[in-house]
Amino acid sequence: WEITFERNGKRITVRTTDHRLLELFEKLWRNGADERELERLAEEINR
């Protein structure tokens, strides 16, 4: 799966075969987690 999240013109794409990681990322994104931390998390998930 691949999903791109966008907020205030900032886009972060997450790619993984584990839908649970996408759900976790989406919850953090929707709850306003720090964008720098989300970028780092996305990099780890995308590996």
Rank of each mutant, 00 (worst) to 15 (best):
R20Q: 13
N8V: 02
E37M: 13
A33Q: 05
R40V: 10
E2L: 03
V14A: 01
G9H: 04
L24K: 12
N46P: 02
E23A: 11
E26T: 06
E39L: 11
D34C: 06
R40W: 09
K27G: 10
L21D: 04
K27S: 13
R36Y: 15
A33V: 11
V14I: 15
D34S: 12
L22D: 00
F5Y: 12
T17N: 15
L24R: 06
I45K: 01
E26N: 05
G32S: 05
L28E: 13
R30S: 13
L28Y: 12
D18M: 04
T13W: 01
E35T: 12
F25N: 00
F5I: 13
L38D: 00
I3L: 11
E43P: 01
R36N: 15
V14H: 00
T17R: 11
T13M: 06
R7F: 12
E26V: 08
E39H: 09
I45P: 01
K27W: 13
I12H: 04
E44R: 11
F25G: 00
I3Y: 10
E6L: 04
V14Q: 00
N46Q: 07
R11N: 08
E23C: 11
A33E: 09
R15N: 08
R36H: 15
L41Y: 06
I12P: 00
E23W: 05
W1H: 11
N46T: 10
T16D: 01
F25S: 00
F5N: 00
I45L: 06
I45N: 02
E39R: 06
D34E: 09
R47A: 14
R40H: 12
E43N: 12
I45E: 01
L24D: 07
E37G: 04
L38G: 01
G9A: 02
E39P: 01
N31Q: 13
L24N: 06
A33F: 09
K27R: 11
E37F: 14
I45S: 02
E43Y: 02
R11H: 13
R20V: 11
T17P: 08
A33M: 10
E39M: 12
A33G: 08
H19F: 14
E39I: 13
D34I: 15
L24H: 10
R11E: 08
L38E: 01
T16Y: 05
E43R: 09
G9S: 04
E44H: 14
G9M: 03
D34Y: 09
K27P: 02
E2K: 01
D18W: 02
L41I: 09
E39K: 05
R30V: 14
L38M: 08
W29T: 05
R15I: 09
I3W: 06
T17I: 07
V14T: 00
I45D: 01
R40I: 13
E39F: 04
R15G: 03
I3Q: 12
I45A: 04
I12W: 06
K10R: 12
E35H: 12
R20K: 15
N31S: 15
L22I: 13
V14R: 00
A42Q: 03
L28M: 14
T4F: 06
V14F: 03
L22H: 02
R15Q: 07
L38R: 01
T13I: 11
E43C: 06
L28G: 02
E43W: 02
E23Y: 04
K27H: 14
F5Q: 00
N31G: 13
L24S: 06
N31Y: 04
D34G: 10
I12L: 06
T17K: 12
L41F: 12
G9I: 00
R7A: 13
E26L: 13
L22P: 00
W1E: 07
L21N: 04
L38K: 01
E43F: 02
W1V: 12
T13F: 04
I12D: 00
R15V: 10
N8M: 06
T17Y: 07
T17F: 08
N31R: 04
I3S: 07
V14D: 00
T16V: 10
K27T: 14
N31K: 09
E43M: 09
D18Y: 02
E2G: 01
I45V: 04
